[in-house]
Design a protein around this nucleic acid. Structure first.
Length: 887
DNA sequence: CGGCGGTACTG
DNA sequence: CAGTAC
DNA sequence: GCCG
C-alpha cells in the first residue's frame, strides 16, 4: 500500500471517527488505553503492533537507489550495429543489450576504423584522460581539430585514456510514454503515472504500459501514443525492474488528478439544496478541480446543509466556540495537538470545503488551536493540503515569499497531523502541560521505551520533513543549529551530560585489532584500520537537511517546468529563465560545508560516548542498536526521498555541482585505492574494484559532507570497511596505504589496461615480460604478442572521432557529455517530443507502435550544427563540455 | 557464506 | 577455454 | 568489499 493510499484511508477513518472515541477504539487503533499506564500502553503498542503495520508504509515509497543502479534498457538500432564490426565485438543476433548506466559511464566506445571515411568531416581529437576522473580532458574545443595521426600522443605514463571510438553508434533510450506534465523525470527512474490519461474521464483505471508486455501494446495505447517518439521496450531484466518500480512509484506519486478525486470521494462536499447551483460551482472551485462526475454525484448526495463560509470565518467560529467545543472534547480524545497553534491552508481562501471544515474540527477535537489568520507571532505550525500551491498559499497568507515564514514554523501537510497520533507517546488523556509546542518535545522525556516507540518512524524531525508542504522549506521547524549543541539527544542523556559533547576528545587511533579488521592489498602491506566508531547522527542539525533541500540543483526543481505537452512551447524557454536564483546560494553550501567540517570533530568525539554505552551492554545497548538501525534506515529513506523530490533531469544542472561534490577528496582517495586493486589479478580484487565503483558512485551523488562513520555507513554500497576508510580520510585527509601501494608496477599495469582490448591479465603479462611503457609494448619488448584489436587499440590510444560536418553540434554534444548526461539529454528530448542522436535533434519522428524500433517517418532535423541551438531547444542551460560529466 | 550481469567475440 | 568488452 |  502506498503512502497516499494509506493516507487517504487513514484520513477517512479518522475524520469519520466518532466524536468521542471509546476506549476500545483507541486501544485498537493506537494501542492506547487511557485507563492504562502509559508504559503498558506503550508495550502493547510496540509489541503487538495494534495498527496493522503491514498496511502502513513506514517510509516514503521512494527508492532511487534501485533504479539508479538498475539495468537500464538501451536499444541499439540494427542499422547502426554493423558499423561496430570493425573491432572485436558485434552483436548480430541481438538488437538489444542491457547497459547499466551507473557502471558504464566511462566513455568507452567502440573502435571503428573504417568509419573514418566521410568527405566533409571534422576530426575531434580527444585529450587523454579518463573522462570521469579528469574533467580537463574534455577541453576539446574546435581547436583540437586535426587528423588522427597524432595517435602517438599517449606518452603520459599516468594517463589511462579510455578509447574514444569513431563510431557512430546510436543508442536510443527507451522509456515509457511520457507523462504529461508532472511526475518523476529521473531518467532511470521514470515510470508512467498510474492513471492513463483517459481513465480520468471514464473512471476506469487502465493499466499503464509498464504493466503490459512491452512488445504487445494495446491498440488504444498505440493510437494514443502514435505521435510520441518514446517507447517502452525492455529486456526481461529491465522489465522486471520497471514493473516493480511501477508498484512503488506510481502509487506513491499518482497522477495529478488522482489525489484530489479520491479525497473528494472520502469527503464529499455537501451543498445545500437551496443554493445547490451556486454552492456546487463554488465547491468545484474549492480545493482542486474535480471531474464532472464527482460534482454531479455531490449535488445528488448533498444532504447536510453547510453554508458558504470562508476558512477564516470557520476557524474564527471554532475559536469563538472553543470553550464549548473543549467541553465536549474534554473527556477522551487524546489532546495530542495541544499547544499546537495551527494555521490551516486548505487551498481556497473563499470557501471552506467540507474537508477543510472537518480538518479544522479535527484539530480542535484533538486539542489543537486553529488560528484563523496567518500570524507568525501566534502560530506554531502551518498545515496545508497534500499538494499545496505555493502561490495560492502566499495569496491566502498575504506573504510575499515562502522565505518570509519564520524558520521555526514548519509547513507541513495534513498527513503530518494524521500521522501524529501514533508517534506520540500515549500519555494520560488530560495532559496538563500545554508547553509542548513541538513534536520533538514529545520525545524529550528520555525513556528508552519512548525511543523504541517513536521509532515506528525515526524521529520527530523526520515527520516535519516527510510531511513538509513546501520542499523549499524542508528544514523549517527544526531547531536552529546552535541551540541544539547543548541539547542532549535522547539516546545519550546521562553520559553526554557528564562529559558534554564539547569536550575535545581526540580520536585515539587504535591499532588493528584482529585480522578481520584489516585490509590487505598485497601480502606486504596490511592496512591497519581503526576500530569502528559509532555515532548517533544528530538529526536536529538542520544544516544537513537544509543542504539536502538545497540539493544539487539548488532550491528549484529544474527541468520540470520546461517539459510540456507541446514541444513548441518549450522553444520559448530560455536557459536563464530561472528567475530568482539566490546568487548567494553557492556560498551557502560552502559555509555549511565548513561548519559541518567543524561539527565533524565534535560529532566524532561524542561518538565515543555512545560507543561506550553500547559497550556497557544491557537493555540500553539494545535500544541503541535498534535506534542505530533505524537511524540508518532513516538516512536511507530520507535521502532517497529528498533526492527524488528535488532532482530534475541530470543534464539540467552543471557538472560542477556533481563533480565538485562535498566529499570529493574522499572520492579521490577511494578512486586511487580502486586503481590499486584494479591492477591485481585475484578475483577478490576484482570484486573490490566492483565494490569501490559502487561506493564511489554513491559517494559522488551524496549531497552533503559526510560527517561520521555512521553517516557513511548508511549510504548504500558503503559498508563497514569503506566507511572506516572514509572516516580515516575525513580525519587525516589521507589514506596511508595508498602511498605504500602506488608503485611502478601498478601504474604501468593500469596504463596498459587503458588500451582497448587489454585487461588485467594481458597488462600483467606484459609487465611481467618487462614492458614498462607504451613504447616497450610497441617494440613488443619481452616477446609479447598483441591481438589484432589490441594493436588497433594501441594505435588509437589517443582517441579521435570523425563526424559529418553538419552534425558537428550534435556530435560535440554527444561526445562531450558522458553516458549519463547523454541519456538524460535524450530522455528529455524524447519527453518533449523530439529525438536526439549524435546527428541531430529531430522532430516528429513517428514510430511503429508494435515495433518501436521501426521508424515510420524520419522526422525532420531541427538542429544539429551547434550545441547551443540544441541545448536551447531542449531548455537546458549552456554547459561547457567539462561541465557535462554526470557519471 | 555465496552472489555480484549475461553474452558475444577473439585467440 | 580464458580474456575482454559492453 | 557489500549485501542479503
Amino acid at each position: 500500500m502506498s503512502d497516499l493510499e494509506w493516507f487517504f484511508r487513514e484520513e477517512k477513518r479518522i475524520l469519520d471517527m466518532p466524536e468521542e472515541p471509546d476506549e476500545d477504539y483507541l486501544a485498537r487503533v493506537y494501542g492506547y488505553r487511557p485507563s492504562e499506564d502509559a508504559t503498558v500502553a506503550h508495550e502493547r503498542g510496540t509489541s503487538e503492533a495494534p495498527i496493522k503495520d503491514a498496511d502502513r508504509p513506514r517510509e516514503l515509497n521512494v527508492d532511487m537507489s534501485e533504479s539508479l543502479n538498475e539495468v537500464q534498457k538501451v536499444t541499439v538500432p540494427p542499422e547502426d550495429l554493423h558499423i561496430n564490426q570493425g573491432m572485436t565485438t558485434k552483436r548480430k543476433s541481438s538488437t538489444e543489450r542491457t547497459v547499466d548506466p551507473s557502471v558504464r559511464h566511462s566513455k568507452k566506445r567502440r573502435l571503428s576504423p573504417e568509419h573514418k571515411k566521410g568527405s566533409a568531416s571534422v576530426t575531434l581529437a580527444h585529450a587523454t584522460g579518463s573522462a570521469s576522473d579528469n574533467p580537463d580532458s574534455h577541453e576539446l574545443h574546435q581547436t583540437s581539430v586535426g587528423p588522427p595521426t597524432d595517435a602517438a600522443g599517449p606518452q603520459s605514463p599516468v594517463a589511462r585514456p579510455p578509447i574514444q571510438q569513431p563510431v557512430v553508434k546510436e543508442t536510443t533510450i527507451t522509456s515509457p510514454a511520457p507523462d504529461k506534465g508532472k511526475a518523476r523525470e529521473h531518467e532511470a527512474n521514470h515510470v508512467d503515472p498510474p492513471l492513463h490519461p483517459y481513465s480520468k474521464s471514464t473512471g476506469r483505471i487502465i493499466a499503464t504500459n509498464n504493466d503490459k508486455q512491452p512488445d504487445v501494446p494495446s491498440p488504444q495505447q498505440a493510437s494514443d501514443d502514435a505521435t510520441r517518439t518514446t517507447h517502452a521496450r525492455y529486456s526481461s531484466h529491465a522489465k522486471r525492474t520497471v514493473k516493480s518500480k511501477v508498484i512503488e512509484v506510481s502509487t506513491a506519486n499518482p497522477g495529478p488528478a488522482a489525489a484530489p478525486s479520491s479525497s473528494s470521494v472520502t469527503t464529499p462536499a455537501a451543498p445545500g439544496p437551496s443554493s445547490s447551483k451556486v454552492s456546487g460551482a463554488r465547491a468545484k472551485k474549492a480545493e482542486e478541480p474535480k471531474p464532472k462526475t464527482d460534482a454531479l454525484k455531490k449535488e445528488k448526495s448533498g444532504k447536510k446543509k453547510r453554508e458558504l463560509i470562508t476558512p477564516r470565518e470557520y476557524a474564527q467560529r471554532l475559536q469563538d466556540n472553543l470553550s464549548e467545543v473543549a467541553a465536549t472534547r474534554k473527556s477522551r480524545a487524546s489532546p495530542y495537538l495541544r499547544g499546537k497553534r495551527i494555521y490551516y491552508h486548505g487551498g481556497d481562501m473563499q470557501y471552506a470545503s467540507e474537508e477543510t471544515r472537518k480538518r479544522m474540527d479535527y484539530i480542535i477535537r484533538y486539542g489543537g488551536t486553529v488560528v484563523p489568520t496567518y500570524d507568525p507571532e501566534v502560530i506554531t505550525h502551518i498545515v496545508t493540503t497534500e499538494k499545496p500551491s505555493a502561490p495560492a498559499f502566499l495569496r491566502a497568507t498575504g506573504l510575499r515569499s515562502l522565505r518570509d515564514i519564520p524558520n521555526h514554523i514548519p509547513t507541513v501537510t495534513w498527513s503530518w497531523v494524521i500521522r501524529a497520533p501514533r508517534r506520540v507517546i500515549p500519555e494520560t488523556p488530560v495532559e496538563k502541560g500545554g508547553e509542548s509546542t513541538d513534536v520533538a518535545d514529545n520525545n524529550k522525556g528520555d525513556k528508552t521505551e519512548q525511543i523504541e516507540d517513536s521509532s515506528s518512524e525515526p524521529t520527530a524531525d523526520y515527520h516535519l520533513i516527510v510531511h513538509a508542504a513546501f520542499k523549499d522549506r524542508l528544514d523549517a521547524g527544526m531547531p536552529p543549529p546552535p541551540s541544539n549543541k547543548g541539547r542532549s539527544k535522547p539516546q545519550q542523556s546521562a553520559t553526554s551530560a557528564a562529559s558534554g559533547p564539547s569536550r575535545p576528545t581526540p580520536q585515539e587511533p587504535k591499532s588493528g585489532r584482529d585480522g578481520s579488521d584489516t585490509s590487505i592489498i598485497s601480502e606486504f602491506t596490511v592496512d591497519r584500520v581503526e576500530s569502528k566508531q559509532s555515532a548517533i547522527l544528530d538529526f536536529d542539525d538542520s544544516s544537513f537537511l537544509g543542504k539536502l533541500a538545497a540539493g544539487p540543483n539548488g532550491a528549484g526543481v529544474p527541468g520540470r517546468a520546461t517539459v510540456t505537452d507541446n514541444p513548441k512551447s518549450s522553444l520559448n524557454n530560455k536557459s536563464d529563465s530561472t528567475p530568482e536564483v539566490d546568487s548567494l546560494a553557492p556560498f551557502y553550501n560552502q559555509a555549511r560545508a565548513e561548519r559541518e567540517a567543524e561539527d565533524l570533530r565534535s560529532g566524532l568525539s561524542s561518538e565515543e560516548e555512545s560507543a561506550k554505552e553500547i559497550g556497557n551492554g544491557g537493555k540500553r545497548a539494545a535500544t541503541h542498536a535498534v535506534s542505530k538501525k533505524r537511524v540508518r534506515r532513516f538516512v536511507h529513506v530520507f535521502c532517497r526521498a529528498i533526492l527524488t523530490l528535488i532532482q530534475g533531469f541530470l543534464c539540467d544542472s552543471k557538472a560542477e555541482e556533481h563533480t565538485a561534490c562535498a566529499n570529493q577528496d574522499v572520492v579521490n582517495k577511494l578512486q586511487e585505492l580502486r586503481e590499486l586493486h584494479k591492477a591485481k589479478l585475484s578475483k577478490e580484487d576484482t570484486w573490490k574494484v566492483y565494490t569501490y565503483d559502487k561506493a564511489i558512485r554513491a559517494l559522488r551523488s551524496y549531497p552533503t559532507r559526510i560527517r561520521c562513520y555512521e553517516e557513511a555507513l548508511a549510504i548504500p554500497g558503503i559498508g563497514d570497511k569503506t566507511a572506516q576508510k572514509i572516516t580515516e580520510i575525513l580525519q587525516t585527509g589521507d589514506l596511508r596505504r595508498i602511498g605504500y601501494e602506488k608503485t611502478e608496477d601498478i601504474e604501468a599495469i593500469n596504463m596498459f589496461q587503458g588500451i582497448y582490448g587489454v585487461g588485467r591479465q594481458t597488462a600483467y603479462k606484459w609487465y611481467a615480460n618487462g614492458c614498462r611503457t607504451l613504447d616497450d609494448v610497441r617494440a613488443r619488448k619481452g616477446g609479447i604478442k598483441l591481438s589484432t584489436c589490441q594493436e588497433i587499440g594501441l594505435e588509437y590510444y589517443a582517441d579521435f572521432l570523425t563526424v559529418p560536418y553538419e552534425s558537428r553540434g550534435a556530435a560535440l554534444l554527444y561526445y562531450t557529455g558522458d553516458d549519463i548526461f547523454n541519456r538524460s539529454l535524450r530522455l528529455k528530448a524524447n519527453k518533449m517530443g523530439y529525438s536526439l542522436n549524435q546527428r541531430g535533434l529531430y522532430q516528429g519522428i513517428v514510430r511503429n507502435p508494435s515495433n518501436k524500433l521501426e521508424k515510420l517517418n524520419e522526422g525532420t532535423i531541427i538542429a544539429s550544427e551547434t550545441e547551443e541551438e540544441i541545448l536551447r531547444i531542449l531548455g537546458v542551460p549552456w554547459q561547457e563540455p567539462h561541465e557535462r560529466i554526470r557519471g
